[in-house]
Amino acid sequence: MTTADNILEVQNLSVHFGHGDETVKAVDDVSFVVGHGETLALVGESGSGKSISALSITKLTPRAARFEGGQVMFGGQNMLSLSDRELRGIRGSQISYIFQEPMVSFNPVYTIGWQIEEALKLHRKGIDRKVEISHLLDLVYLPDRLATAYPHQMSGGQLQRCMIAMALACSPELLVADEPTTALDVTVQREILNLLAELSKKVNLSVLMITHNFGIVSDLADHVCVMKKGKIVEEGQTRQVLDDPQHDYTKQLMAAVPRLHPAKGGGVSPMK
């Protein structure tokens, strides 16, 4: 069961797609924990099962996914055995998500304000929602007037800020950020990461951060798990893993980030 220190414990989780010879073990016997107020980074190449692991936590996985065993312990309960209704109560209020593509992750036909308000409506009763929305936009350094804007009228960076505002609307305990900056310009990436780091400190938020980028790992994460083909191949304290990677795969991944090792990283990326 969840120990006092950990907010989330994933134990021996397996998620498969397809049947027979076409079975894809997207997540294969994976275990990791996220401590209170800590940031865990999940890294790995494309298709290694990071997103599926993250979505499994609140059963947001695609319909084709099959849970083949394991547990996801959060707040003393196994999320995988909760009913749809109970899960809805947790999604957005205790566990929030930030997705990779801000441009398509908002509903194009509703305003940003409407979409943030929807989260508030669902989980927080008896507050002045207008005030709360402008407060949330303030938090992510956006002007109030953007509440009446439609997604297509905003830039990717602005939208990702809105996404953060929406995720934090109901003061969740755990934030799952699935490659929150991959789709953004390099200059904007920095701002968003700084914002995330700042806010998670401010409200003592636990974060599960999914990324390709070891730069982000070293800046934000306390712990790191390295995934390959659905399995965790290496884990540990961030400094420890970065300074002395044990697994060849981790070394390859690190070598593939030119920012950290410009001398080695000039060649063709082994990823993808």
């Binding site: 957005g92 398509v104 509903n107 669902l122």
Partner: peptide, 26 residues
Amino acid sequence: YKDYVRTAFAKGVSKPRVLFVHVLKN
């Protein structure tokens, strides 16, 4: 299958509401 539907589910929106409020308008 669009991403905004997943976002709505991640906020805790129920399936009928996703269907009638989010999907139908699009």
